[in-house]
Design a protein around this nucleic acid. Structure first.
Length: 574
DNA sequence: GCCGTTTTCGGCCCGACTGTTTTCAGTCG
């Protein structure tokens, strides 16, 4: 699958460069579309090529098929190599700045000679950018804000990318000779929404052998060594992961210590001191210097007189006091999740049919799903008109009649419009089992307006769930400026659930907002927002975010039985 | 650049928002 990623990445880069060069939007789009197709491919693209079936893939015709073939046979692409010569890499990087698109990047480069984000910043500060035709002081200010926002998040990788990368490597290590155990550490194990100090710990008596194994993995592009000892690995996706190899009898302390966070370990260190220990990666050390080895992480906490504290809670947010006083909540677990209340189908921008989504959900042990295609306001996503909603209802009824072992509920992801009203009238919404509402546009129209729109949707008795409340996209876009406290209080008052969107690009609500929601008694929904059956697997990220916010199964409506869920929804529609 | 047909070329998911315009271009979803 390395080839798939590589080809998709190359096509996206080509699209970027062609865009900057002012090529036709259609041509640019063709490359992006092909990249999406390749990313979404189930199997290895090499197999497709061998079967001579590249042309069957949507968005791939003769020209792109030939380019894929060139990459698979020669490992490179002449067209791409010529293209990258034509535009400085720093100009392409400017596209990462919010509000800077291909036109702007191309113009500041050609008209001002700006070839990097740093130079763009200088030019904007110097007031040079606003001298260009069609650009003014506000555009300049937006560019500066965009650069600042980009800087704030560099060095952090969204959880999903880091997690998949690390777990593929962990899976390859499992069962290898010399490897006794392996686990993630750092903010990766704590499942923070973005990862900065994630890594792996491996228990082994033969570090050299482990290093040798790692070096041979196709998922590992580079071993980073310090004094001859491997301390980090770079994944084929470019992610840097710290690496620690420890003796098996020191596994527990190492795992605990390296998982952190710093705040948690600092607080735990005080507890240790009170018991006459010092906390370290190698062992619990008594005052006389003797070591207490812990082969198991639970033992570390037990020695310190504490119950086990789940990694997601280890942020120094009062978890140690709570553990001491027996107040740790019974965190929601994966097995508690009964259903999924947001997913899309081919009726709008999803990849599969209602029946296929239902089957995929059944295979994952879910008992019910809510189909939530977009309403017509999301024209770009093929949003549904009212009559299409009726057609979909018929299909849902048919799937349920076929008794697939999972109950399919009829819903919608209805647009909250600029004035706070919804895309469908109340009588249409009343006919649905559960209504999910969300904002996709006007996310930067200001705190007052965004808050007002959300409050208006929350107060609509037909709306049961507010999806991805802030609209943030990790690593790409910060959430809308809004009065979250007011939103949470309104949701608590009306009994409207707020979504923890489990897509690893969103994780919205964030853990901090979840914690406040739990305090206020706001109901939550952990939803995959799947646009493809495989996206159902993202629920684990939403689950982790819920746990990081100290949520229990009772706080989460889709951890309830179908009967309880529907009774809740019905009680709200009044 | 793809696709479906009209088998050679025209259409390709569209609308909101912003800031610069004085009628529209660029970005985003």
């Amino acid at each position: 699958m390395v080839e798939n990623q590589e080809i998709a990445r190359t096509f996206r880069k080509i699209a970027d460069i062609l865009g900057i060069q002012g090529e036709s939007q259609r041509r640019v789009r063709a490359y992006r579309r092909a990249a999406e197709t390749i990313d979404g491919l189930e199997g290895d693209i090499t197999a497709k090529w061998r079967e001579g079936k590249l042309g069957d893939l949507p968005g791939i015709g003769d020209v792109l098929a030939a380019k894929i073939e060139e990459m698979l046979t020669t490992g490179k692409l002449g067209f791409y190599e010529r293209l990258v010569q034509q535009v400085p890499p720093g100009v392409v990087e400017m596209l990462d700045v919010p509000d800077v698109g291909p036109k702007t990047a191309g113009r500041v480069w050609k008209e001002l000679g700006v070839t990097s984000i740093d130079e763009l910043e200088s030019a904007a500060r110097a007031g040079t950018v606003q001298q260009l035709q069609g650009m003014g002081p506000r555009t300049e200010a937006r560019i500066l804000e965009g650069i600042a926002s980009l800087r704030r998040r560099t060095g952090r990788t969204p959880l999903g990318a880091a997690w998949y990368s690390a777990y593929e490597i962990l899976a390859s290590l499992e069962g290898l000779q010399g490897v006794q155990r392996a686990a993630p550490i750092g903010d990766l194990r704590r499942m923070q929404d973005t990862v900065a100090d994630g890594g792996l710990v491996v228990a082994s008596r033969d570090p050299a052998l482990v290093t040798e194994h790692l070096a041979r993995l196709p998922l590992v592009s580079e071993l980073l060594a310090n004094d001859g000892i491997t301390t980090a690995i770079r994944s084929s996706g470019g992610l840097e992961l710290g690496l620690h190899i420890v003796e098996p009898e020191r596994w527990g302390t190492a795992l605990q210590y390296l998982t952190g966070s710093q705040a948690h370990n600092a607080a735990l260190g005080i507890v240790a001191q009170q018991q006459g220990y010092r906390l370290s990666k190698r062992a619990l050390v008594r005052e006389d210097g003797t070591e207490v080895l812990c082969a198991d992480e639970k033992l570390v906490y037990r020695h310190l007189g504490l119950p086990f504290i789940p990694p997601e809670l280890r942020e120094g947010r009062g978890e140690i006091e709570a553990a001491r006083e027996g107040r740790l909540p019974p965190l929601i677990e994966y097995a508690d999740i009964q259903g999924d209340l947001q997913m899309h189908t081919t009726f709008s921008d999803g990849h599969q049919s209602v029946a296929q989504m239902a089957e995929a959900a059944r295979a994952r042990g879910l008992h019910y799903i809510l189909i939530t295609d977009h309403s017509y306001g999301m024209a770009v996503a093929g949003g549904l008109r009212e009559e299409e909603l009726q057609e979909q209802r018929a299909e849902i009824d048919a799937v349920n009649a076929g008794c697939s072992g999972v109950r399919v509920l009829a819903g919608i992801e209805v647009e909250i419009r600029a004035d706070g009203t919804l895309d469908y009238p109340d009588e249409v919404l009343a006919g649905l089992d559960i209504v999910v509402a969300s904002l996709h546009t006007g996310l930067r129209t200001g705190r007052e307006r965004t808050t007002r729109r959300l409050l208006s949707a929350i107060r609509n008795p037909h709306v049961d769930v507010i999806a991805h409340p802030t609209g943030r996209l990790l690593g790409r876009r910060e959430g809308a400026d809004l009065d979250m406290e007011a939103v949470l209080r309104a949701a608590a008052e009306t009994g409207t659930a707020l979504e923890i969107n489990a897509h690893p690009d969103r994780l919205d609500l964030s853990d901090v907002h979840v914690a406040r929601a739990v305090e206020l008694g706001v109901k939550l929904a952990i939803n995959s927002d799947a646009h493809d059956v495989r996206d159902l697997d993202h629920l684990i990220f939403g689950l982790a975010t819920a746990r990081r916010g100290w949520a229990t199964a009772d706080d989460v409506v889709n951890a309830w039985s179908l009967e309880r869920l529907l009774a809740w929804a019905r009680s709200r529609g009044a």
